[in-house]
Design a protein around this nucleic acid. Structure first.
Lengths: 210, 210
DNA sequence: TCCATTTTGTGAACTAATTCACAAGGGTCT
DNA sequence: AGACCCTTGTGAATTAGTTCACAAAATGGA
């Protein structure tokens, strides 16, 4: 049933869930596709289409029961569990991500931080002690890591990536500005902080010219 | 000529430019769409289609002249100039972004940092002195800011956003997890650090179940 | 010069994603 | 119960994006 779900659909499901949780807190218990669409910047038809890919969660004439739909979405998105995350790279980006509370709130728990700089190894970050990247295999296995966030320099990526994949990690969030080559059963999401600014730059240049 | 350029196309143009600059450094002076496609994870036809939206930059039988194409792409993307950027919000994310060198390399110069916390106002970050967010209009105008990066808490967004737009800024990079409502001539790009992890979570949950 | 080879630029074909539009179900009021 | 709203779920139509496929350059070698 769940084939060919587009990235855009998944992104919107996340938005829906976020709004549902916000609205639930206010005490409303039902929401129409129209309302949900308004709050997430899409159309009612799109909301219904997205949800219909996974089942029939609404009541005609009424809308969607908020707690139920939220729970369905959490299950669909795999957010009904805790994901064990390792941060590989303890530099500026790494430490900002570590301190960012939004991950934990959604069930992504950073259980290990690794760095190549031996002067950093042994530092305590909250509950986590920084490990040497040389011990990557040991740490990822011992901590049962599901997802790795790569915030290392581009030149270290190929070696580290191979080792991460070899140890069985199948989800990678990549902050390094390189094209990652991985086996088919490994999922990579790239985050590129400059890319969005470049898209802005493009948009601003376009409108200015006309 | 430049109507209806999709977001995917713009993203790929950025990739192309990145590869061209990397390859240029090595001393190669020409590149085929096939090679460019391999290095950016797309197809040769896609590369040619993307470029053809803006003109004919290649030579049949030969490929694309690297410095020329790079220069064209910089112009298309608006990267043939410096963009003056203000960081609104000097918390963890804000300071990580400030210290990230990738922005400056691409011509995005952070010329102001604003924060609501009066104990932070007056701090020196490199060449920049933190301003009070109360002086937002004054600072953005004085510094001729083109683009604002919002790294403030969700609840402060509506007020700050209105003021940013009112002062004439037309490009906004938003790190706050809220849907921004802006006039049509203002471009907003949302960056959501949790979203990508959620997409990973979805992908991992899917494959695991089958 | 002519032939073989390479690679672009681009209509046409195809595939994916979004929007339309409406029957069917569910609720409420009288 | 019947009339009247609402709102879902979903095929069909539309729009957007990608891939195919090939004529039209451009080069190099005989």
């Amino acid at each position: 049933m769940r084939r060919n779900i587009s990235e855009s659909t998944v992104r919107r499901l996340s938005f829906y869930l976020r709004i549902l949780e916000k609205v639930e807190a206010v005490g409303i218990d039902t929401l129409s596709s129209e309302k949900l669409a308004q709050r997430t910047g899409t159309t009612a038809a799109q909301v219904r289409k997205d949800l219909s890919l996974f089942g029939s969660f609404g009541k005609r004439g009424l809308g969607y029961a908020i707690p139920q739909l939220a729970s369905e979405l959490r299950e669909i998105l795999g957010l009904d569990r805790t994901w064990r995350v390792a941060l590989v790279g303890g530099g500026r980006i790494g430490s900002a991500l570590f301190e960012y509370s939004g991950f934990r709130k959604r069930g992504f728990e950073i259980v290990a931080v690794l760095d190549a700089d031996s002067s950093k190894v042994g530092q305590r970050w909250g509950k986590v002690v920084l490990s040497d990247i040389a011990d990557l295999e040991k740490v990822l296995t011992a901590e049962s890591v599901d997802i790795v966030i790569l915030t290392i320099p581009a030149e270290s990526v190929p070696d580290v990536l191979d080792r991460v994949v070899a140890v069985g990690v199948r989800g990678i969030l990549n902050y390094a500005p390189v094209q990652l080559r991985v086996p088919g059963d490994v999922t990579v999401k790239d985050v590129n902080m400059v890319l969005e600014l470049e898209a802005l730059s493009f948009a601003l240049s376009q409108t200015k010219g006309e």
